[in-house]
Design a protein around this nucleic acid. Structure first.
Lengths: 233, 233
DNA sequence: GCAAAAGTGTTAAAGCTACACCCATGT
DNA sequence: ACATGGGTGTAGCTTTAACACTTTTGC
């Protein structure tokens, strides 16, 4: 293989921010790092980009390795490139964010990696610049979820509107009006009534919906406004 | 320096998408490549990331080198990582986009690099995956400009509302209503009347405004809606 | 029957679109 | 004075926010 006459080759890492939702709050999947430096401290799941794989494939490899899941929602958000971000050696890191239904994960794979779901609100500091990455990811989640129906990726296949609302309230840390929220969501036409009811609830059982996959794909990039006006930053 | 025990170090490039606006249409600043492969063909301005510089600094270095400008609007948009995107050697490229006032450029620097402003509408194909990068950049510009007052970065310090409107019409390839546009823009409170008039115009002279820098900085991340509703993809 | 959560309706205000009209300038 | 482009006002519609009432379920 020909090469450019340059000596600047650099390590390229991939780090994954994995968000989940347990019905009450947003969770972040992190691992306890098992090698030096920073051994034993909390870290995002990551790895190095292989020479023979595309960036997106690398991210999917790492995500599959940890969660046993494929075909999950993954998006590249930015690349971290500060010189001293990794104390061992100059490394730039391409950061991806992934949204998964917590119930879908492969528990054995997760345990094997010493991984844990931490509450976003009460999480301990992470290594290197990972806290910064998480902050950017939250910002991105807020931005995107306000305009695109991305929230569904965090819910199980069948879900109720009140659960969806709890999710949005967790993302933005606000209280929303039940009636307006319901109307807004239903008016998108993205939800299909399954005819079933949520039997978890102890009072009136809520209707279970599922996404209309067709419309979801076709209209994904339309602009919606899932959040009341002043909100968001 | 300690090193990770891995042999996966990869070339990291930076490519810059430089948008300008000449009063009528959006322009893209590109260079005629002067080395193989693809010598003589159109290319984005780029370079390799140095070992001792941050990503953002690299982008600013490259932009300064070409345009003689500092403190311009620069934003990282994504990282291109397909295995075979550069035929010479595996190279990932961090793509930045920059908005500059065409009149501000250093013409000598631009000429020295054999650079040209091409119309976005009628541009020739670029090398490698650069067309793909440009497409993503336009999408990003459209997305961002619809919600944030980013358009001002493409105009000179003092500008008229009709010029701003032309800019938005160029970005989205639509016709906007003069009166509604003006009202919407003025209602943001971001514009300050300079008291002067545009003497370029041959009919009624339009009022020259400039940005209220304070409000611009403070309110930049608020949500606005500069585009009529259905618009945008 | 009561508490708790889900579902539906209404109304007033705000924002947006689509218009028409007037003003300033150069020829 | 007239053509061209800039500036402002308004009516009607749509969307949104804020609110009250009814329904279902478990105890």
């Amino acid at each position: 293989m020909n090469r450019y006459p340059i000596e600047n080759r650099i390590l390229v890492a991939i780090d994954c921010i994995i968000f989940g939702f347990d019905g009450e709050e947003i969770k972040l999947l992190v691992i306890k790092r098992n090698f030096e430096p920073e051994k034993g401290n909390w870290s995002l799941m990551g790895g190095f980009l292989h020479h023979n794989e595309d960036l997106e494939d690398g991210a999917e490899r790492i995500l599959y390795d940890l969660t046993g899941l494929k075909n999950i929602y993954v998006e590249q958000i930015f690349t971290a490139g500060r010189i001293e971000r990794d104390p061992v050696e100059r490394t730039i890191s391409v950061v991806f964010f992934a949204l998964i239904g917590i119930r879908d994960q492969d528990k054995e794979a997760v345990n094997a990696h010493n991984a844990h779901w931490l509450s976003l609100e009460r999480k301990p500091p992470l290594i290197f610049d990972h806290d910064d990455m998480v902050a950017k990811a939250i910002e991105h989640l807020r931005y995107k979820a306000a305009l695109h129906p991305i929230g569904f990726e965090l819910l199980p296949e069948r879900f109720t509107i009140p659960k969806l609302q709890k999710l949005y309230e967790a993302i933005y840390n606000v209280q929303l009006d039940r009636r307006n929220f319901s109307r807004k969501i239903l008016s998108t036409g993205l939800l299909m009534d399954t005819g079933e009811k949520d039997d978890q609830s102890s009072t009136k059982k809520a209707t279970l919906y599922r996404l209309d996959q067709e419309k979801y794909k076709n209209k994904f990039s339309s602009f919606w406004h899932f959040m009341p006006h002043p909100g968001i930053e």
